[in-house]
Every structure is written in structure tokens, then in C-alpha cells.
Design a binder for these strands. Structure first.
Lengths: 144, 144
DNA sequence: CAATTCACGTTGTACTATACAACTACATCT
DNA sequence: AGATGTAGTTGTATAGTACAACGTGAATTG
């Protein structure tokens, strides 16, 4: 096994271990929003509203899955639908003030959790780690 | 926002994006084994057999979850149970030859997928990325 | 040593996330 | 106007997961 093989093997194992834990960890950090609903709400906030179809396309989820997730967020009062006057098939989704607030709390908790995890890293390592992750994910997104 | 904050933010977003995709990606790479059953089977192979309780403790899963996962793997003929003669409560779990074979295929596919994703990385970057991931995960495991 | 407590695993129940297919309602294009 | 396409919902099914209750066997202890 070459050095290269060994590094790839470690990356594979560590990313897998991380993926396995992620949902449970997210649920612990912010029990009020699952990893998926957190992500969708964050996207709405970030994009200043978008359509369910856009969410489905961006996160590679079935439109029915998004529909139900959004329905749940709406029921919780975190998302509101605004009918598009241009196209009556379309609902533009926005976080409500309550949704923005709960998202803000979740983001703060997450951010703090990550800061704690990475507290003893020096800045140069953080910067390199960040760029490696960006590079890794960017390549994935292109391929689907 | 400091440079440090910016790096942590990127790490957080990228790891989250990765986690969201991981199960679906695994399902695409090896449809015959889910990410969880792959992991459990790999653990059995690696440890040369272990108990359901050990799997539950190691992966932070409920024992009932492990019980059902193992039952499914057994039904597929990928795992066998050997009663421990020392302690009749215990079943030591082992991959069957068929289980070892399907695991081997899945590992090969996964390994290849990772090699492809990382094909244009040079060895020094791979090595650093691997060590960052190890460092990140090691800290998590200690805290639970 | 009998009785209690503990450990291992299974089963009942419930919930969440997800996909696919069928459907409705609206839009667009020919 | 009719055919085709798009946005979203709903029916149905499956996987993964947790918690609680249970059965069985092991270990401890009065």
C-alpha cells in the first residue's frame, strides 16, 4: 500500500465516521430543528426565499420530501408561503420571524459547537482544513 | 468576522453538506449495503467478530437498532451468530463468506470512488487532509 | 444458596426521513 | 383549443432509529 493509498483510506474512514454521527450530533445541538429542516430553513434565509422545487434540486431531494418538510416547518410556524402573482403554481417560501429566530439560535449553537471542537487548532491549520473541505465538496457537486 | 471565524464557518458548512449527502452517495456506490450495514459488517470483519452490544456502544446506536440491523444482515446471509459457550446470553457475530465477499466488493467500490474524487490531489495535501480529519474526529469521540 | 440485581438480546410501538407514482392545478407552446 | 410540461400534494411503502417492556441467563450478596 502506497502512502497515497493510506491517506485516501484514512480520509474515507474518517469522513464515513463523521457522516454516521452527523444527524445525531445535530439533533443534540439543536433539538428543535433536524439537520435537514435546519438546512432548508437556512437556505430560505440565505436566498431570501425560494421555491420548493429549488430546494429539491439543490439538495437532491424528491419534491415530495421537500413538500412534507416544508409542511412541517409551516405547521411549526417557521415558514410561510407566498403565492407568486406571476405564476399561480408557485409558492415562494420564506422564514417567518419565528423561523428566523429559531434558525438564528440553531446557527449560534452550531457555530459555538464547532468553535469548541476546533478551539485548539491554530489559524493556519483551520484555514487549510477549510480549503481542503471546500475542494473536496466542490468536486463532488460537479459530478453529482 | 475574524479569519478564524471565517474558516470555522466554512468547515461547518462543508462538513454539513457532506453529511447530508453521505447516505445517498453510499447507496449509489454500493446499493446492496446501506451506510450503516456496511459499517457494521466492516466492524465485524475488522474485529474478527464481536457482540451486538459492542457494536451498539461503538456506534452510539440503540441495542434494538443493532439487533434489527444484524437480523437483516443475517437474513441476507451476510452475518452468522455463534453462541458463546462461556456465556449463553452472548452471540458472537461474524461475517459469513458471502458477507465477506459483498463487503469486499463494497469496500473496493468505495475505495475506488474516493480515489477518483481525490485523483488530482497531490500526496502532501492528501496526507494533511487525512491528518486533519483524524484530529477532528478524535476530539469528537472523546467528548461523545 | 436463594433472591436480587445486572447484562444481552428481542420484540412491540412509534416516529422521521425518504422515494416513487398518481394526481390536481396552472402555464406554455404549437 | 389541445397537447405537453411544471409546481406542488397526497397515497403508499420502506428504512432507520429510539424507547420501553420483556425473557433469559449470569453474577452478587445477604
Amino acid at each position: 500500500m502506497t502512502q497515497r493509498d493510506a491517506s485516501v483510506e484514512i480520509i474515507q474512514r474518517q469522513l464515513t465516521a463523521f457522516a454516521r454521527r452527523a444527524r445525531a450530533t445535530a439533533a443534540r445541538i439543536h433539538p428543535e430543528l433536524s439537520l435537514v429542516s435546519y438546512t432548508l430553513l437556512a437556505h430560505l434565509d440565505d436566498q431570501q426565499g425560494c421555491r420548493a422545487t429549488d430546494l429539491a434540486a439543490h439538495y437532491l431531494l424528491d419534491k415530495s420530501t421537500v413538500s412534507r418538510q416544508i409542511a412541517a416547518l409551516e405547521k411549526l410556524g417557521f415558514v410561510e408561503r407566498r403565492l407568486d402573482p406571476e405564476d399561480h403554481r408557485v409558492q415562494v417560501l420564506h422564514p417567518t420571524p419565528a423561523g428566523a429566530a429559531v434558525l438564528s439560535n440553531a446557527m449560534t449553537s452550531r457555530r459555538q459547537a464547532f468553535h469548541e471542537r476546533l478551539a485548539d487548532w491554530d489559524e493556519a491549520d483551520l484555514d487549510r482544513f477549510a480549503s481542503y473541505l471546500l475542494r473536496y465538496n466542490a468536486a463532488q457537486e460537479l459530478k453529482g
